[in-house]
Computed example of a mutant assay.
Amino acid sequence: MEGNFYLQRLVFWAELPNPTVDGTLHLSVFSEDVAGKVVLITGASSGIGEHLAYEYAKRGAYLALVARRENRLREVAAVAQYLGSPYALVIPADISKIEDCKRCIQTTVTHFRRLDHLVNNAGVSSVNLFEEYDNLQNAVPVMDVNFWGMVYCSYYGIPHLKQSRGKIIGIASSAAWLPAPRLSFYTSSKAAVISFYETLRVEVGRDIGITIVTPGLVESEMTQGKFMSKDGHLYLDQQLRDATVSAMPIMPIDDAVKGILRSVCKGDRYATEPRWMKMAFYYKTLWPELVEWFNYLINMRGSSNSPTDTFGKRLVQLSGLKNWFYPDSVRSPDLDVETN
């Protein structure tokens, strides 16, 4: 009972408005109108980045879409303009490279003469047990994309965002709170993102709004099973996906991005979708041993030596929960996810 009392108190205080750096109270009363504003989105060729582009487009924003897959970006740009964006600029780039990040910002500002929102979304997931790596250098791209890509874009974007009194939206993950097996590098990179933006908020928070987004499992190429192998290559493995995701519900992408953009326009400091995932943070804080034991039971224990034959995977398959917890796009056995 005592633990539940303190948990309720934590939830209560977490829902209160947050003070800004100068000590004034931040009240999320008014929603920003992004019509006519310039929004740069990294990782815009799929998942959260793609669908955030569509939501911004519906609200009349100009878009700069960044990702490696130019053909896919052009498809997203065409849909965005159909949905209401006055113009969607396509910028093929690899954000793990500092020169590409600098070029993305410069190209956007040269074309539109301003930058209002910088959505740092691009990410990749490596799903391997730590001891499975033959060469740890193959895990370096996870940190290069998930963390350094956001750092580079933020560095070059801040001068322009200060002029427009704009916003940075950093897409981290609620996985940063949880000791999930096979996700050691991914969770570490997302924890670094949260810490980076919390510190940056102290430094520039009076001039630039910063929203840290911590999604749970959301319909995307990652939850479809697109991972980085221990050899450093992207591939599709739905069996490994089932073993990793197990009995956790996957949120439909449209619902997730609507909630995220709603929080961004309100000026919220943090956004979590689905909202119930916030509870994972409090459980991890109050009962870390319980969370570790549960994750081991669900995601590590199995009836064979196969790394994908876990208790959580069997539970989902035998109980029929997969039909309830996984959207159609994730359940399909005939997925054709690009792995380049």
Rank of each mutant, 00 (worst) to 15 (best):
S329M: 02
I253V: 15
H160W: 14
V29Y: 14
T20L: 11
V29W: 15
F294S: 11
F196K: 01
S246M: 13
K278G: 14
L335G: 09
C265I: 00
N71T: 05
V316C: 07
R68D: 06
M228S: 06
I91S: 02
I41F: 02
V39T: 05
S332W: 05
S45H: 06
A256Q: 06
G267I: 05
G49F: 03
S329P: 01
A139Y: 04
I158Y: 03
Q238G: 09
R241D: 04
K102I: 00
V316A: 13
V202L: 08
V193I: 15
L63I: 01
S85L: 08
G259P: 02
E219G: 04
F325W: 09
I260P: 09
I260D: 09
R74T: 06
L217I: 05
Y6T: 13
V218C: 04
I98S: 12
F325A: 06
E55A: 05
K230A: 13
Q106S: 14
F196P: 04
V218Q: 01
V90M: 04
R68V: 06
F325K: 03
D116R: 11
P215N: 13
A280K: 00
R314H: 15
K190L: 07
V204D: 04
V127R: 03
R201K: 01
V11S: 15
G43S: 02
L261R: 09
A35Q: 12
L10W: 11
V330Y: 07
Y56T: 03
K258R: 15
G320C: 00
P215G: 13
S154V: 12
R241E: 09
S195K: 04
H51C: 07
R275S: 11
A64T: 05
G149V: 09
T339L: 08
N4I: 11
I168L: 10
N18F: 07
N305D: 15
K322C: 01
